[in-house]
Write a protein that binds this DNA or RNA. Structure first.
Lengths: 98, 98
DNA sequence: CGAATGTGCAATAAAATGGTTGCACGTTGG
DNA sequence: CCAACGTGCAACCATTTTATTGCACATTCG
């Protein structure tokens, strides 16, 4: 999932989808790459569980699926917390030594 | 930075560094790839501002630099928040319509 | 109906990525 | 001192990723 958000184009797509569902063509308009490239990026995001698509006539609408964002956030929090612990232990160790 | 955390080996390195600074050789011992590969991963993490290195004699110690993790977390929070807003607006819109 | 629109699929090309080997160089400890 | 250890650097290879082009298919609207 971090890999999915790691591409600048995909991160941009995610932020644009914050405003609500959009079609492939609309998403392509403000990007410097072709529609097909955008499709592949959306499929990558879908594989990571970050977005999902709905068919509406001849359009394919993509929308955010923010549950996975929560898990990513928790992972980062976990790492931060562990690091804080490590720092605390290190401080205690130094104090003990002196 | 999401790209930096996107590689499984690098994410593993980050979690291992939660316990405190470690040298390249030590980090390589539990990984299936060569020391040089680990070096490249550490440099990628360094470029993203996630870790930093200190020289200690002939060793090079790497440690976490968790400030950037905070900004990443905030980014995810921001995206989640925007999405919540969008959902709320959508709900209001539908209600208004009926 | 027929043209325009929105999309899907396949082949391909170019670039980035992840990994390796081989060797050189500084540091440390007996 | 010198052998072992920890690291740096460069060349190189394979795979994956990113993006393109060309064409086909379905849907909508005048």
């Amino acid at each position: 999932m971090f890999a999915a958000l790691g591409d600048p184009t995909r991160l941009r797509l995610v932020t644009r989808l914050c405003g609500g569902p959009l079609s492939i063509t609309v998403l392509s308009e403000d990007e410097p790459v072709t529609r097909q490239a955008i499709t592949k990026h959306l499929e990558a995001l879908s594989l990571a569980g970050l977005v999902r698509d709905t068919r509406a006539g001849r359009e394919r609408l993509w929308e955010l699926q923010p549950k996975r964002l929560e898990t990513a956030r928790r992972t980062l929090e976990h790492i931060s917390a562990q690091w804080d612990d490590a720092l605390r232990r290190l401080a205690e160790y130094i104090e003990e030594k002196e």
